[in-house]
C-alpha cells in the first residue's frame, strides 16, 4: 500500500516537472536574408523555408530562394540579440522578452551602415515572419524569421 503510494506520488511529480520543463525548454530562432529571383534551373529551397515554400512562391512570384545570410539562435532567457549578415546587408534581431505567445523582437535591416527598416513584432512558433525588403538586381531581398 505504502509502496504504491510512493510510486503514485513519484509519477505525479515526474509528470508535473516534465510538463514544466518542456514548457520552459529553449527554442531556436532561425533568421535569414533571402534573395528571391526567377531562374531556369532553381536550386532546392533551404530546409528552413520548406514549410512556407508554397506561400513564398505564391506571394512573391519567384521560383528560387537563396539564403545569403543566416543565423540560428537558441533562446535561453528570451532576452538575447544576434545578427544575420551577408556581404552588404545585416539583420539585427533583439529579442526583448518571452511571452506565452512567443518572443517580442526588434528587427533592424541595415544596408552596410544605413538603417533601411525597423520593426517590432511578436513572433510565434505557429507562424513565421516574412519581410519584403528592397529590390536587388532582378530579385528581391526577403527577411525571414522562423521559430523552430
Amino acid at each position: 500500500m505504502q509502496r504504491r503510494s510512493y510510486f503514485l506520488i513519484g509519477v505525479s511529480l515526474a509528470l508535473i516537472l516534465g510538463g514544466v520543463a518542456s514548457a520552459r525548454a529553449s527554442q531556436i530562432v532561425w533568421s535569414g536574408l533571402v534573395i528571391a529571383n526567377n531562374v531556369a534551373q532553381p536550386d532546392k529551397i533551404p530546409p528552413e523555408l520548406n514549410r512556407i515554400e508554397g506561400t513564398l512562391k505564391a506571394l512573391f512570384g519567384y521560383n528560387q530562394f537563396k539564403v545569403i545570410g543566416q543565423s540560428q539562435k537558441t533562446l535561453v532567457t528570451g532576452s538575447e540579440d544576434w545578427l544575420a549578415s551577408s556581404k552588404y546587408f545585416s539583420l539585427s534581431v533583439d529579442s526583448k522578452r518571452e511571452t506565452a505567445a512567443g518572443y517580442l523582437v526588434n528587427l533592424k535591416l541595415f544596408q552596410e551602415k544605413n538603417l533601411l527598416l525597423e520593426t517590432e513584432a511578436k513572433v510565434s512558433k505557429a507562424r513565421p515572419l516574412v519581410i519584403k525588403g528592397p529590390q536587388v538586381g532582378d530579385g528581391q531581398l526577403l527577411l525571414v524569421l522562423v521559430v523552430q
Binding site: 506571394l59 507562424r127 515572419l129 538586381g137 531581398l141
Partner: peptide, 26 residues
C-alpha cells in the same frame, strides 16, 4: 497582412531604393 491561409505574417515594404545585383552576394 497574413498570407498563405495564415501560414505567414508579412511585412510588405514598397518603395525602398533598388540595388544592383552585386548586393545579392553572400
Amino acid at each position: 497582412f497574413e498570407s498563405g491561409e495564415g501560414k505567414v505574417t508579412v511585412l510588405w515594404v514598397d518603395g525602398l531604393q533598388s540595388l544592383p545585383s552585386e548586393y545579392a552576394t553572400k
